[in-house]
Design a protein around this nucleic acid. Structure first.
Length: 257
DNA sequence: AATACCACCAACCGCGTATTG
DNA sequence: CCAATACGCGGTTGGTGGTAT
């Protein structure tokens, strides 16, 4: 198959449960690193990039679900004031939260704040000191309208600096950040270790080997979803012991419901 | 009941960086 | 050292469900 045909066959848009099951299975098999390989070998008509994103933002069992707690909100504000839009870096400080989640949260949160601020500007009140939110005590007010918009590129209204932003924006600094990537316990919190994965694979193999051709959905899915329903995601940050759980997420309905 | 609006979230895209051959 | 490929990050968009009018 040539590249053009491959591209034409690629799926986009929302993931189906079937695809999720398939991806989870193959990530269990091969780990969450070689995404192009996983994408190919799984037979999913998705790019490695898309697979990675789905895993990182949704299927990863270490993820927390539900609303941000006040404490998390505070942390987001705190770290954002330090680092600016370094979402992945901030996410590392909030176990179970993804950069995407934090970014989305910030966007809606800040949009609200910006609107509140505009109102304040239009009808200034003597009682104005800080906006209603419990948490915005950081030195550089993260609300959009306070930010300069006249740089080489127009900035999004919520694109703020943060103390380290100036240096962090330079290429060199970026590299340094990556090389010195802090490996904290946060990063490993709730993540199924490779050892455990390989153990599982060994187990599978010892139980008659792995048959990649079987119909994953019909063969695996019922047990997976049953299991996940009863044991997996716990909403609102209840005690989570992911390491004891297998890797499978709940369906969207279960997550919402 | 219909619709308009808003908030939230999943997913895509482009680009820079890291890795590999 | 260089080019190709893969990965990761940040910005943006589009869909969906809930709420207000």
């Amino acid at each position: 198959m040539n590249h053009k045909e491959e591209n034409e066959n690629l799926r986009k848009g929302p993931w189906t449960e079937h695809e999720d099951v398939q991806l989870v299975f193959y990530v269990n098999m091969f780990g969450d690193r070689r995404w192009d390989f996983v994408a190919k070998v799984s037979g999913l008509k998705r790019t490695g990039k898309s697979c990675r994103l789905r895993w990182v933002n949704y299927l990863n069992p270490g993820l927390k679900r539900g609303r941000m707690t006040p404490h998390e909100e505070k942390l987001v504000l705190e770290y954002h004031s330090k680092w600016g839009n370094r979402w992945s870096r901030i996410a590392r400080k909030l176990p179970g939260r993804t950069d995407n989640e934090i970014k989305n949260y910030w966007r809606t949160h800040m949009r609200k704040k910006a609107q509140e601020n505009k109102k304040m500007m239009l009808s200034p009140s003597p009682s104005f000191s800080n906006s209603s939110s419990s948490s915005s005590t950081c030195t550089n007010d993260p609300t959009a309208d306070s930010m300069p918009m006249t740089e080489t590129k127009e900035r999004s209204f919520y694109d703020t600096g943060g103390i380290e932003m100036v240096s962090a924006r330079s290429k060199n600094n970026n590299t340094i950040v990556k090389h010195n990537k802090e490996i904290t316990s946060d990063e490993h919190h709730g993540i199924y270790s490779m050892d455990e994965i390989w153990k599982d694979i060994e187990l599978l193999e010892s139980n008659g080997g792995i048959n990649l051709d079987f119909d994953l959905y019909s063969e695996m899915a019922p047990q997976i979803w049953d299991y996940s329903l009863n044991n997996f995601w716990m909403m609102d940050g209840g005690q989570q012991d992911f390491s004891r759980n297998m890797f499978f997420p709940a369906t969207s309905d279960q997550l919402i419901g």
